[in-house]
Deep mutational scan, measured.
Amino acid sequence: MISLIAALAVDRVIGMENAMPWNLPADLAWFKRNTLNKPVIMGRHTWESIGRPLPGRKNIILSSQPGTDDRVTWVKSVDEAIAACGDVPEIMVIGGGRVYEQFLPKAQKLYLTHIDAEVEGDTHFPDYEPDDWESVFSEFHDADAQNSHSYCFEILERR
């Protein structure tokens, strides 16, 4: 099963200049909980913004210009990325925008964090048809001392 995991502000903004323009430790914990011990696929820009392999996960970098870091697996196509994951129950696609666009048609599940923030962004989550998805989990949280904005975790499964 292919799943996408993303944090989205208003207007589906997911990033600005290779960074997330908010401070939500709870979302980072949600991300870790849902990706640990699963292969993660990301684009080169996302890889560069993280700066290191995510521990406890097979890191697969999709790029037309593969790098030389041998701590991760470099691939040039969506099919190659899927094959590099091996026989696993769930593959997690973690961004960025172009990689989400490439995998959305193949995805069966979306793990979304909806952030109540209007922020400037240069990267967006692809538009998706809500009628194609069923919400199977939703959990709202107010902003607090650690988390700069209110947010809602949601899991959607393709109908």
Rank of each mutant, 00 (worst) to 15 (best):
A7V: 03
L8Q: 04
A9R: 00
A9T: 15
A9C: 11
V10S: 08
V10H: 03
D11H: 03
D11Q: 15
R12Q: 15
I14P: 02
M16C: 14
E17T: 02
N18G: 09
W22T: 01
N23V: 12
N23C: 12
L24A: 15
A26T: 03
A29W: 06
K32Q: 05
R33P: 01
N34Q: 15
T35A: 00
N37S: 08
K38H: 06
K38L: 08
V40A: 13
H45Y: 04
H45D: 03
H45N: 13
W47S: 05
S49Y: 02
S49T: 14
S49F: 03
R52Q: 15
R52N: 14
L54V: 05
P55G: 12
G56S: 10
K58T: 08
K58I: 14
K58E: 10
K58V: 13
N59T: 13
I60L: 14
I60M: 09
S63F: 02
S64E: 14
T68Q: 14
D70A: 12
D70V: 12
V72Y: 15
W74S: 05
K76H: 11
E80P: 03
A83S: 10
A83E: 14
A84T: 09
P89C: 09
G97D: 04
R98G: 11
R98V: 04
R98S: 05
V99N: 04
V99Q: 01
Y100I: 01
F103H: 01
P105I: 08
P105A: 12
K106C: 13
K106A: 09
K106H: 12
K109G: 03
K109R: 10
Y111F: 07
H114L: 13
I115V: 07
A117L: 04
E118T: 13
E118Y: 07
V119W: 06
V119I: 11
V119R: 11
E120V: 07
E120S: 09
T123V: 09
F125M: 10
D127Q: 11
Y128S: 05
Y128I: 13
Y128M: 07
E129A: 08
P130A: 13
P130W: 12
D132S: 11
W133P: 01
S135R: 15
V136Y: 06
V136N: 09
E139R: 06
E139T: 07
F140S: 11
H141G: 07
A145P: 07
S148K: 00
S148Q: 00
Y151G: 02
C152S: 14
E154A: 14
L156I: 12
E157I: 08
R159T: 11
